[in-house]
């Protein structure tokens, strides 16, 4: 979880990712950020996030992102 937040802060400094729960709808992360984020997550956790996973529900908060990562790690 901490690692996820660290990556997020690299991408978009100055946002409190512990509390934000609407990263996509509030347009805090745009599609470019998402792409950067996914590339980093893939590298960091050795997973493969596919376009099918790119839905707002998976990226709206740091927690949601972490859930996605753990799910993919298990597979």
């Amino acid at each position: 979880m901490e690692e996820v937040i660290k990556i997020l802060e690299q991408i978009k400094p100055g946002v409190d990712f512990n509390t934000e729960e609407n990263l996509i709808e509030d347009e805090i992360l745009d599609s470019f950020d998402i792409v950067t984020l996914v590339a980093k997550l893939n590298d960091e956790f050795d997973i493969e996030i596919t376009p099918a996973d790119l839905v707002p529900e998976n990226f709206n908060s740091a927690e949601k992102i972490y859930e996605l990562v753990t799910r993919l790690e298990e597979e």
């Binding site: 599609s31 998402i34 792409v35 996914v38 590339a39 996030i49 596919t50 376009p51 790119l54």
Partner: peptide, 11 residues
């Protein structure tokens, strides 16, 4: 375009 071109190609 975002969902069916941008994301797949980016990933």
């Amino acid at each position: 375009l975002k969902e069916y071109i941008f994301y797949p190609i980016s990933l």
